[in-house]
Amino acid sequence: MIKDFIRKRSINICLVCTGGCNGCDIEVAALLSQRYDLEQYGIYLHNNPRECDAMVVTGTVSKQWQEKLVELYNKVPEPKAVVAIGACALSGGIFQQEGEKVGAPVSNHIPVDAEVPGCPPRPAEIASAVLKYVPVALANYRRKS
């Protein structure tokens, strides 16, 4: 009850980079800057999965990350949501070449609620996706369980 009330005004997210070119992470970093000022929308960026409401996953899920990503996902307190950002997280992007061993897409490993395409997506796209779909995803999660 209190959680719901608080979440209407703020969402804590955890950024997970699972191997890639880090372009998407830089776009998330741009969101933190004064130009976009992420926190004015009530989004707070943690790097602690235990404290967050939604995970933001970037990058092709490399071999080393495949188990750890699931581990991280399990650490997120319920209800939880996952937003996959960038072409790598959605399909492997340019790393999905012949002979490459990437674990993309992210949805092979953990359930994904929202996808933001682009290589990288614009900061505004990331912020609007988180704002729009994370509350919906959290409500859906509650209904399912």
């Binding site: 072409a87 959605l90 399909s91 492997g92 340019i94 897409p105 996808e115 395409p117 682009g118 290589c119």
Partner: peptide
């Protein structure tokens, strides 16, 4: 296209046209 699987030529059964279809989850917007 530098990204694998981002663009494919698809044949439309009805109109018998072949045209590119873009898969936005792979497209890198170059």
């Amino acid at each position: 296209c530098p990204s694998p699987g981002a663009i494919k030529l698809v044949r439309d059964e009805e109109s018998e046209m072949i045209f590119p279809v873009i898969n936005i989850s792979s497209c890198i917007r170059c």
